[in-house]
C-alpha cells in the first residue's frame, strides 16, 4: 500500500474554531487541516490548547466555528479511535486485559464469559501491539507503556478511519516511545488510517509526523515538518530557541525511523 501522506484530500478540517473554558479563551479562530492518511502532529507549549483541540473534535468541549469530517469512501460516518493521555483508574479493580478489550464489542455481560470470536479478535489486536500473552493480566498490573499499548489496541479494535491520540507516549521512556511510534507507522501503512496526535516531543514529531500544526491558541504555522519546525517558528511559539530541532538536525538520509512516510519524504525533499 502506498503512503498517502500530503494527500490533497482532507480527513478533518477545523474552520475558525474558538473555544473558551470559564471565560478564558483557549482556542482562537483555529483553522487547520488534517490531510487524509497523514500522521498529523499538533505541537505547542503548555496551555496552547492542544488537548482542547482534540476534545473539540471528539465533542467533549463546546466551541464555535466548524469541524468538518468528510464521510469515508463507503459513505458511512467516520469511525474514530481515541487513545487518551493517561487513563485514571483504580488499579485494584479486577478487570483483565481480555475483558478490557471486549467490553466495547460484546453485549452479553462479562459474568457469562467472553465469546470465542471476541477472544480471538482481542488476541489478534494484542499481538498487533506486541502484547501477546497478557490477556489474563489485570489492567492494574500493567506498566505505563503496556497500558498505552492496550489503549491503542482498544482504539484499533474500532477499525478506525481516524486515530486520535493525546500524547500517546507520555510517561513512557524514550526507548518505549520510539517503539510506540514505529509501531504506529507500520500500522498506519497497513490499515490506512489517518493519525492525529498531540505531542510535546519535537524529535519524535520530526521523525514520525508528515504534517504539523503549530498551535499557541492560534495556528502559528502548518505544513510538512521540515518547513514548519524551523528555528524562527519554534522561537516564536515556544518563546525560546529550541536548538534541539534546528532544521539542520533533521534526519537526513537513513534515520532510525523506518516509516515510508519519513524516509520517502527524505528522498524528494
Amino acid at each position: 500500500m502506498t503512503c498517502a501522506c500530503d494527500s490533497d484530500r482532507t480527513a478533518v478540517m477545523f474552520e475558525n474554531v474558538t473555544a473558551a473554558l470559564g471565560g478564558t479563551v483557549i482556542l482562537e479562530g483555529v483553522t487547520a487541516r488534517v490531510p487524509l492518511g497523514s500522521c498529523t502532529a499538533i505541537v505547542g507549549p503548555n496551555g496552547a490548547g492542544k488537548t482542547t483541540m482534540l476534545l473539540a473534535l471528539l465533542g467533549e468541549v463546546p466551541f464555535t466555528g466548524g469541524i468538518r469530517i468528510p464521510p469515508s469512501d463507503e459513505g458511512r460516518a467516520l469511525r474514530i479511535g481515541y487513545v487518551p493521555q493517561r487513563l485514571q483508574f483504580d488499579r485494584a479493580m479486577p478487570l483483565t486485559v481480555m475483558e478490557f478489550m471486549v467490553m466495547g464489542w460484546q453485549r452479553r455481560p462479562l459474568w457469562f464469559g467472553v465469546a470465542r470470536r471476541y477472544r480471538e479478535r482481542a488476541r489478534q489486536l494484542l499481538a498487533c501491539v506486541k502484547l501477546e500473552g497478557l490477556e489474563r493480566r489485570k489492567i492494574g498490573a500493567l506498566s505505563g507503556g503496556e497500558m498505552q499499548r492496550v489503549l491503542l489496541a482498544l482504539a484499533l479494535g474500532r477499525e478506525p478511519d481516524l486515530l486520535v491520540m493525546d500524547e500517546p507516549a507520555s510517561g513512557v521512556d524514550f526507548q518505549g516511545e520510539h517503539i510506540f511510534c514505529e509501531l504506529l507507522d507500520v500500522l498506519r501503512r497497513e490499515q490506512g488510517f489517518t493519525q492525529l496526535m498531540v505531542s510535546h516531543d519535537l524529535p519524535t514529531v520530526t521523525h514520525h509526523a508528515t504534517h504539523v500544526i503549530c498551535l499557541n491558541r492560534k495556528v502559528a504555522a502548518e505544513g510538512p515538518p521540515r518547513e514548519v519546525l524551523t528555528a524562527e517558528n519554534l522561537t516564536a511559539i515556544f518563546g525560546l530557541h529550541m536548538g534541539l530541532v534546528d532544521s539542520s538536525a533533521l534526519p537526513d538520509g537513513k534515520s532510525s525511523c523506518s516509516s515510508a512516510c519519513c524516509t520517502g519524504r527524505d528522498g524528494h525533499a
Binding site: 476534545l55 467533549e60 487513563l87 478487570l95 478490557f100 467490553m103
Partner: peptide, 23 residues
C-alpha cells in the same frame, strides 16, 4: 445490567474514550 454491564465498565473507566468509541 444484562444489556449494559460491559458498557457501564467502559464508561466508568473513561467516559471520553467510551463516547469517542460510540457508547
Amino acid at each position: 445490567q444484562v444489556y449494559g454491564y460491559n458498557r457501564m465498565l467502559y464508561i466508568g473507566l473513561s467516559p471520553s474514550v467510551a463516547k469517542a468509541h460510540g457508547v
